[in-house]
């Protein structure tokens, strides 16, 4: 631990670099996660309204034909 803290006279610059990197990557990661969650919620809402994609409708009708 002593070695970790012995960053010399420029410790402020070193710590600032690690904090900036953590902040930028953390913000980007959080944005990607939030964007994904928002998109999945909106897709679910559309599907709940009965709106489906063409490929989903085709899969459903194929399954229906196979079942009949």
């Amino acid at each position: 631990m002593t070695d970790l803290l012995a960053l010399g006279p420029h410790a402020g610059f070193i710590v600032a670099c690690y904090l900036v990197t953590l902040g930028v990557i953390g913000a980007l990661f959080a944005w990607i996660l939030a964007d994904g969650a928002r998109l999945r919620a909106r897709l679910s809402a559309m599907e709940a309204q009965g709106v489906t994609r063409r490929s989903a409708r085709a899969r459903k009708s194929n399954a229906g034909e196979a079942g009949s």
């Binding site: 998109l39 909106r42 897709l43 559309m46 709106v51 489906t52 994609r53």
Partner: peptide
């Protein structure tokens, strides 16, 4: 997912 959502919104 964004493109799928756009397609569904257009439909």
């Amino acid at each position: 997912l964004r493109r799928r959502l756009r397609t569904m919104q257009l439909q």
